[in-house]
Structure formats: C-alpha cells, structure tokens
C-alpha cells in the first residue's frame, strides 16, 4: 500500500516540475530571441541621436513609432489597415474556395487530374505578377482587380497542398471504410478530408503569406487607401518614417494572421504523431 502512494507522489512532483521547466524554457527562448532586435533598436536610436546617421534618410525608431501613433490619432490608420486586411481576406477566401473545389476533384478523380492538371500547371508557371496589367485592363483599377490578383496568389499553394494531401491518403485507411460499405461521399468526408487536413493547413498558411505579398503589389499598382498606398505616399512625399511604419504594420498583420492559423493548426492536429506534439 505505502509503496503505491509513494509512487503516485513521485509521479505528481515529476509532472509539476516538467511543466515549470517547460515554461521557463519558453520564457528563456523568447528573451533570447528578443535580445538582438532590442540591441539593434538601441544602437539605431543612439546612432541617430548622436547624428551618426541622417535622420531624413533613416528615421529613428521613436520617430516611426510617433508616426504610427499620429496616424492612429488622426483616425486614418484604421481605414488603411482595414481596407488592406479586407482585400487580403476576400482574396484569400476566394482563392481558397477555388483551390478547395478544384483541388478536391483533381485529387480524387484520376481522369480529372489528367484533364485539368497540365493546364493548371501551365498557369502556375506564369509569375503571378505578370497578370497585373491584364487584370487592370479587364477590371479597371478598382477593388476587383486587386482581390483577383490576391486570389490568384493564394490559389496555387492551397491547390497544390490539397491535391498532394488527398493523393497521399493511406490506401489502408480507405479500405477500412470500404469494409463498412461507406459510400464514396462518406469515404471523402470521414477518411479523406481528415487525413488530408494537415497538408491543407500547410497550404493555407503559405497561402496567407502569399496573400500579404500580393496585396502590396495590388496596392502599389494604384489605390487611394491601404497600407500599400501609404508606401507610395511615403515615397512621393519623401518621408521614410511613413514607409517604414507601413512596413512594420504589414509585418505585424502578417505575423498575426500566421499565428492565428498556426494556433488553429495546433488545435486541429493535436492527434498528429510528430515532434511538436511530443510531451
């Protein structure tokens, strides 16, 4: 009896300790990662304060921060961030939707792959930015050409990952469904979809990354609002602090959406037997 109790306590303390150690490790990792950016910021700021660098070319971090705060107080910041975010969101949804539909059919039906894949691969070979003039000619400089460009950018990574995810589903698992006389639809819904989810999520993450890249291109080609528009304004009015401020905002937004998807991924894939899920 006593041995039993001892054993249990042993396990308990072990468990607690490992949680603490884990947390400490995380904090230490975070601190280590922030060290160099922090030093760079300090050096940068002092270099400008001591006039080693020209503040007109290279604005100090505090100036940039001031610029962002100023934009926020004017109230224009939210409009710019909002419209950019909106464009990425709509383009992302449109591109993902098209990719899911096409990718599922191509992945599932061999004949459809033979029919469609060469064409899609050919389109993929075109650098997506080459579409810009054509989209502007077709749809004008308004929202639709921008969203279209972003959608095209998002489409390919999502499509490729869905196709390879579906084609990579273990035949042995599908056979289990066949033993139970699943209909093709049930096999798709209960085996193929969940089994290809990891690959789909990878596609979504690289799709979002490309979405942010293409929104810059879309807004540079002509816009009256948005973070990309601020880049143009900054260039034309010779205010590098505005350019760097919007670059930073882009970085923050991109990072935020990526973290969001990453959390989603971790939640949805906690069953995966990989390094990340190791205890």
């Amino acid at each position: 009896m006593t041995v039993n109790i001892d054993e249990r306590e042993l396990f308990k303390t072990k468990g607690k300790k490992s949680v603490n150690v884990n947390f400490e490790n995380k904090v230490r990792g975070l601190a280590l990662g922030l060290l160099i950016p922090f030093i760079l910021l300090v050096v940068w700021e002092t270099a400008i304060r001591l006039n080693w660098l020209d503040a007109y070319v290279f604005p100090a971090p505090t100036t940039i921060l001031q610029k962002i705060i100023e934009l926020a107080q004017e109230g224009t910041l939210w409009g710019h961030v909002g419209i950019t975010f909106f464009r990425v969101l709509i383009g992302f949804l449109a591109g993902t939707f098209a990719a899911v539909v096409l990718g599922s059919i191509v992945g599932y039906f061999k004949w459809f792959e033979q029919l469609m894949d060469p064409l899609i691969q050919a389109f993929r070979a075109i650098p997506s930015l080459a579409w810009v003039p054509l989209f502007i000619l077709w749809m004008g400089i308004g929202e639709s050409s921008k969203v279209m460009l972003i959608a095209v950018g998002v489409f390919f990574p999502v499509y490729l990952n869905i196709v390879s995810g579906i084609q990579g589903v273990d035949r042995k698992l599908i056979e289990v469904g066949k033993i139970y006389h699943f209909t093709p639809l049930q096999i798709v819904r209960r085996i193929i979809l969940p089994a290809s989810l990891p690959s789909f999520l990878v596609g979504l993450r690289s799709g979002v990354g490309l979405g942010w890249m293409f929104v810059v291109a879309a807004e540079l080609m002509g816009a009256s609002q948005g973070l990309g528009y601020l880049l143009v304004v900054g260039q034309n009015t010779y205010s590098p602090e505005l350019i760097i401020a919007s670059i930073i905002l882009f970085a923050l937004l991109g990072k935020a959406t990526d973290s969001l998807l990453k959390t989603l991924e971790a939640r949805a894939l906690k069953w995966q037997d990989n390094l990340q899920n190791q205890l």
Binding site: K172, V176, G177, Q272
Partner: peptide, 26 residues
Amino acid sequence: EQPIGMIFQEPRLMPWLTVRENILFG
C-alpha cells in the same frame, strides 16, 4: 446489416479519432 467484419494485420486506426471514436467508426 454488417455481413462482413475484418481485423487487418495492422491496426489501421484513424489517427484523428480517439480510441472510443475509432471503435465506433463504421
């Protein structure tokens, strides 16, 4: 309603389902 059942040489569990859900699979 389920004329044939099969136990394969490998477990062939759905990795995204828990033990309970796997048993209820099908």
